[in-house]
């Protein structure tokens, strides 16, 4: 328990060590701690922002999907309507075509009939003339009997 000059030296050492720590140890450590705190804060902030962005983009994606789905349904409905329409049109066109062909055939038949009748009429006239010739056994002047013949032709 003797006091001597040692305590004065110890006091000096005390201040030197304190100064050393203040100068060389404390600032870098505090800087590292503060920097890390800032880094962590930034990281948390970024995570929060990322979460928000994810939320909004997933909401957007959902909207897009709904829109696409309704658009697809619309397209399908349109296509169905169109196909029904096309079938109707085809049916109508076929019906028209049939009618037209039928009419044309009818007309042709009529034409043929008329032609046949004309020919028949000519042949009957000739036959009649030949018959009359035979009956009369003589040449009849066709010119003199033209009127009669044409009247006969009409009657046939």
């Amino acid at each position: 328990m003797n006091l001597n000059a040692t305590f004065i030296a110890q006091m000096v050492v005390f201040f030197i060590l304190g100064w050393f720590t203040m100068k060389f140890v404390w600032p870098p450590l505090m800087k590292a701690l503060d920097d890390r705190a800032k880094k962590i804060a930034e990281g948390l902030e970024a995570a929060e922002a990322g979460k928000l962005a994810l939320e909004s983009s997933s909401r957007q994606a959902g909207d897009e999907i709904t829109k696409a789905r309704s658009r697809a349904a619309e397209i399908i409905a349109q296509a169905e309507k169109r196909s029904v329409q096309m079938i109707e049109e085809a049916k109508l066109a076929a019906r028209d075509e049939g009618g037209r062909e039928k009419a044309a055939a009818k007309a042709e038949i009529e034409q043929e009939t008329a032609r046949a009748r004309e020919a028949l009429r000519d042949q009957v006239a000739a036959l009649a003339v030949a018959g009359a010739e035979k009956i009369l056994r003589r040449e009849v002047n066709p010119a003199a009997h033209t009127e009669l013949l044409s009247q006969l032709k009409k009657e046939i």
Binding site: M1, L3, N4, T6, F7, A9, Q10, M11, F14
Partner: peptide, 10 residues
């Protein structure tokens, strides 16, 4: 005691 008193006087 010198060691501790030195610091406490600091």
């Amino acid at each position: 005691l010198n060691g501790t008193i030195g610091m406490s006087l600091g």
